[in-house]
Structure formats: structure tokens, C-alpha cells
Design a protein around this nucleic acid. Structure first.
Length: 87
DNA sequence: CATTTGACGCCAA
DNA sequence: TTTGGCGCCAAAT
């Protein structure tokens, strides 16, 4: 477990419900503003179920990929969005 | 150890 | 606005 991964995991774990951060933002918060690629790589290789990696999307707001399938990611994001909208 | 790949992003044309 | 090329970091081959 490298410090880089730990930072990335920490940042992703801190993402609030119904919130989506871009890989760039995650990398920036992790302390590696230019490592947005490595961020995706870490999530891809070391994907952990304790990590809401589905809240990490592309710069365009488009869903990048997901270890369990992009479809699941969509559903999760939609669900969380609705939950956060609970007035 | 060197090279390629990848859940990406930004700049220039 | 859309397309192409370049850069960046970590892991896999």
C-alpha cells in the first residue's frame, strides 16, 4: 500500500453522498494534481468495495468506467443523487 | 530494468 | 465546437 493509494482512497472515501468528483479533483486533493491518470489506475487495479469509486467521474461529467460495470455505477449515482435531494 | 497500457485532462488547430 | 496530439503517474507485461 503506497502513500499515493492511501491518499487517493482517503479522498474518495470523503466524497459526500450524491456528490461526484472528477479524477482531476481527486488527484488534486490527494496531493498529486497531475496524477489524475494514476488515480484511475489505482481505482482500476486496487478497487476496493469500501471505496465509493462510483462517485468519481470524468471531467466532462461523463461516467468513465467501473469495476462492477458502468450500468451499476449509473444506478448508484442516480440513487445517491435522489437520496441527497431528499428535502 | 525498459516499454506499454489505462477508469484522464489540457492545449492547439 | 470537435479532433488530434502531448503530458503525467502508477501498475502490468
Amino acid at each position: 500500500m503506497t502513500s499515493f493509494k492511501k491518499k487517493v482512497f482517503a479522498v474518495v472515501k470523503k466524497i459526500p453522498l450524491g456528490t461526484t468528483l472528477t479524477y482531476k479533483e481527486v488527484a488534486n486533493r490527494a496531493g498529486y494534481p497531475k496524477a489524475f491518470r494514476a488515480v484511475g489506475n489505482v481505482l482500476n487495479t486496487n478497487y476496493d468495495l469500501d471505496i465509493p469509486c462510483h462517485r468519481v467521474v470524468r471531467r466532462n461529467g461523463e461516467i468513465g468506467g467501473y469495476n462492477r460495470g458502468v450500468v451499476e455505477k449509473r444506478k448508484l449515482l442516480k440513487n445517491e443523487t435522489l437520496l441527497s435531494r431528499t428535502s
